[in-house]
Amino acid sequence: MDSLSTFLDMGGYAAFVWPGYGLAAIGILGLLVTTLRTLRAREKEFAGVRRNRPLSQNVGPGDDA
């Protein structure tokens, strides 16, 4: 318990170290989450487009080639 509180205290720099790491985590994870979300949404939309117009060759059948 004691070692945990000294860890959290960061030698008195807690107010700077933790926000720094926290914001970095938000930035890094946030970028990952938004990237994955847009990717999934576009994949879904694209799958829909291909299903509706299966004959069109220029829509981009490339992924599985």
Partner: peptide
């Protein structure tokens, strides 16, 4: 991948 899909969607 995501941006490429965006282009393909636009073209479609």
């Amino acid at each position: 991948r995501s941006e490429l899909l965006a282009v393909k969607l636009r073209n479609a």
